[in-house]
Simulated assay, not measured.
Amino acid sequence: MSQLNLAEIPRYKTLSKEEFVKNYLKPQKPVVIEQLTKDWPAYEKWNLEYINKVAGDKTVPLYDDRPVKHDEGFNQAHATMKMSEYVELLKKGPTNFRIFLYNILKEVPVLQGDFKFPDLGLKLIKGLPMMFFGGTDSKVFMHYDIDYTNILHFHFHGKKRCIIMAPDQSKYMYKVPNALITREDIDFSNPDLDKWPALKQAQGHVCELNHGEMLYMPEGYWHYMHYLNPGFSISLRSYPRKIKNLGKALYNIGIMRHYDNLMRRWKGQDWIDYKNEKAITLTHKRLNINQE
């Protein structure tokens, strides 16, 4: 075992709009801004107790780290429970259950007054502020977003470690064909580089997000999240600026997703197994890696 090649993501207490656009948005580079939320009501209010108070009666979708199955729909939840029960679960100790891509702001409108859409030169999509929750040691598998959006990812309550990779690193990532994920049995917190040798060539970025801090993830970036203790995040998104990425987003949404669902129904688990095997053979063939 050895570590990935990861560079610390630059971080600043504040950045002007001009600095952000010039140094990070236009060149598509990640950055952490530590105090962007200091004037948000959320900075003082958002913790698990507050979420329980305003959303405890809501039934929420839960996901764990089980492998993708052929009979599950796209982003289909593995379980549901009341938010109050989930908050108690988070407090008790480690749990694999996470809330993923949940539009809690639509379900609980009072939360909409707690945050702002920052002016950083991005045209943020006002209707898609998604929230994510995780418990101690829960992990979000390495993936990229179907719509290739620019993401402002704000974290609250706890701390989590974020590993991200630029799209040009996909050739080293054991990307699963017709999917948005890598092989799910790769532990990016502690990868076995003997088993996954292509990862030795990957160059990525890492940061630890604390309460109120924001990570900017450019279009199409791979991301893997490891909750170091219970916490939650909100992502604000902006459509792709690059025409080629907009085209990829439209392909993913309009063609790839439907083709994959069709093949799951037709081939069943054999389709999933085939794709997972192809992730290895295609990666190693592309990089001329020979394994016994």
Rank of each mutant, 00 (worst) to 15 (best):
L6N: 10
L6W: 04
P10R: 13
S16I: 13
K17D: 14
Y24Q: 07
P27Y: 05
Q35K: 15
A42M: 01
K53R: 08
K58W: 02
K58I: 04
K58F: 04
P61F: 09
K69C: 12
N75H: 09
A79S: 10
S84D: 04
E85M: 03
L90R: 09
K92M: 11
G93A: 10
Y102T: 00
Y102R: 01
I104F: 00
V110C: 07
Q112F: 01
G113M: 05
D114P: 00
K116N: 14
P118G: 12
D119H: 10
S138I: 04
S138F: 03
V140G: 01
F141I: 09
D147E: 15
Y148E: 10
K159M: 11
C162S: 08
I164W: 05
I164A: 11
D168N: 15
Y172W: 05
M173Q: 06
Y174T: 03
V176T: 05
P177Q: 14
P191A: 10
L199Q: 00
G204K: 04
N210T: 03
Y216L: 13
Y221E: 05
W222M: 05
M225I: 13
S233E: 00
S235V: 12
S238N: 06
I243K: 14
K248R: 15
K248G: 02
I255L: 15
D260T: 11
R265H: 13
R265S: 11
K275M: 13
E277D: 14
K278R: 14
L282K: 10
L282Q: 10
T283Q: 08
